[in-house]
Nucleic acid binder design. Structure first.
Lengths: 211, 211, 211, 211
DNA sequence: AATGAATGAGATTTCATTCAT
DNA sequence: GATGAATGAAATCTCATTCAT
């Protein structure tokens, strides 16, 4: 399709939607849905405002694409975690090491903030995030905990609540970074936080003290 | 609601600002700042749109009042917690029981969601929340943990990270209620979650296993 | 009517309309009709906004009262000028001395500016000013000039145009004061301007050079 | 006016600002700044209200553009007058003939009325008019008169006041047309008025009676 | 396919006027 | 009579969306 005489740097049409979504992620992330302006998204994507409408029917559609697109990459880590599971201890340590790194580096924190912010206006997006990412992750963790309990590795107790206990500090770390660090708050070292948290929690969850 | 014979005006200067702030809390909480319409706030407060401008100069001012007003009542619980502190174990259990109840019942969760959502557009509000509520709470908890470590009650480790470990599930519970429960997610029993979490964490944090 | 026990400084009801008109003159004069706020007029008159509506039905009515009220006092000087008239030279000098002083000291300049400004929106006020003040004044001056011509005192020429020649610098002086002096322009000494102007014009209008 | 088959949009970026300023001149001229409605300006310019904001940030900006734009064309006549100046008599006659015609035909009268009307609300515009148009014109005339006096052509006296004597009837004629003619007043033939006025004044200003 | 000028519905804000007190 | 809180009809301004080019 690409003519030989064409400039090398001409962007391919196929890339446009992704570029727009990437630009939109930035702008939505900074301003929120309603305060984000199509002009800004267009400018940041390096296209005209009209061009956006060649790929997306409405501003809401762009938002949907941004949120949905942030779901996919995180599912893989989830799968990985679910398959491997010799002991809960190992799973928890894998979680602390790998998930915390992913969270710290990916834009998922910004998207999570957007989902939280716009849940009232876009319930279907909250539902997508819940059904496709959050609930499965929580369910996988819950199942692993229940298995650990059945196996006699872990103390009794509500496994879903244990799952929340494990995950929550990571969420807090990410939201902290998005919300308070920009106004001068001391940031958290998310991987370090995750490691200390998980080790402490493991001590509290396991039946025998065999660290 | 309005009886036919009722007067068109009511004169209630003293009550109006609070009524407007209460109505605004609801609407901002549901829609976010930008998507909230003055019409809705006015209607929910039972006043005309113009009346709002007798008490607040701009929409932003209303938002500020809502967010700032939600800081104050939570400070008291904080003070209570800081004064009593015979052992960290007791403090943690008091925290699990009382703070979780407050969070579960007050609108602070909705406001927290707004602060997270609008931190980019209203950094000064994020700063107020951080400086007046979140940072002091975190600092108080951190200090109590450090004291417990000095006393030989608690294991070594970064006390600020321990504080996050303690608080995070409460935040998650509140955001979960605001974000995912409305779209059908299973809610959490926040007090129960808090209790199990704190007991587990205490087991992992204390040096001797004297529950 | 006045009870002995009442405070001495209680303003009499009869004065209220005049006080309102006086305050309105100031505010209209500074801002123009549309930009003047009833709140400001009320505050400057020392009454409540509602009280204004006890005396005037609408904002326009206040404006009308202001403009009409400024017509009356100037009519007297006009009468005086018309009755005395031994020679045009004397009339012109009387005019230069007295009218210029009146113009310089009274608020008529501000009202003139308002009439000019709002003629499009209040044609009936322009008509009132024209019919009751400006046209009679111009007609009186025109008649005096025509008489001077008939008497052989003055050169031939359109007497109405001569009348404009005489009056115009006074108007310019007043508008200059209202318009440009507040932004830093050098003011004019209106009486001095009037005197030099009238003397020069007289030299040009009279048939014999008998100053 | 709009033919049914015509396209809804026209793309005329280059022409739009001038069309809008021209329409705004009419509307501001008729109603004054505050009473002019953006709707009217848009309708008269044949564009939508929104289109105005592609070219001007606020209503005040449109007003500024109107007022400033009316300064430029008049400066040329001023230059012409200043350069030629063999004798004051000739300059005065040139002034009477040419300036009066310009004033009578251009919209400068309406703009002058606006400047007078809104000086209180837009002091910077009054300043622009003063500094860029009125003061230079007055200074040029004053200088020419002083030169005539130095040359022995003209009588002594304050040359700035003489300048006002010369100019004032033109201003009055223009304001008369804008203010009182619409409500039925007899108009003035401005060029004729100017001619008679200048000739009379010249007779009174010159030292020797060599008409 | 791409542009960006233009639209128009809708939002915030103002303020003359009303009316319970 | 007097007050000033409250109303509600505008007015300005914004911006997602359209469409001639």
């Amino acid at each position: 399709m690409l003519q030989p005489g064409q400039p090398k740097f001409r962007r391919r049409k196929a890339d446009r939607p992704d570029e727009i979504v990437a630009a939109a992620l930035e702008v939505f992330s900074e301003r929120g849905f309603a305060a984000a302006r199509l002009d800004d998204i267009a400018a940041r994507a390096g296209v005209s405002k009209g061009a956006i409408y060649l790929y997306f029917a409405t501003k809401e559609d762009i938002f949907r694409a941004v949120v949905e697109q942030a779901v996919a990459p995180n599912l893989e880590g989830l799968q990985a975690m679910a398959t491997l599971a010799p002991s809960f201890t190992e799973l928890a340590r894998f979680f602390a090491a790998n998930v915390s790194r992913t969270l710290a580096d990916s834009p998922v924190g910004g998207v999570a903030r957007m989902v939280i912010a716009e849940a009232g206006n876009f319930p279907e997006l909250a539902r997508i995030w819940h059904d496709r990412l959050v609930a499965p992750a929580l369910a996988a963790m819950t199942a692993a905990i229940a298995a650990g309990q059945a196996r006699g590795e872990l103390r009794p107790g509500d496994p879903r609540q244990y799952a929340v206990s494990m995950i929550a500090p990571l969420l807090l770390g990410v939201l902290w970074r998005e919300t308070f660090v920009p106004v001068g708050a001391e940031p958290f070292d998310i991987p370090a936080l995750a490691e200390q948290h998980i080790e402490t929690l493991l001590r509290g969850m396991r039946l025998e003290q065999t660290a």
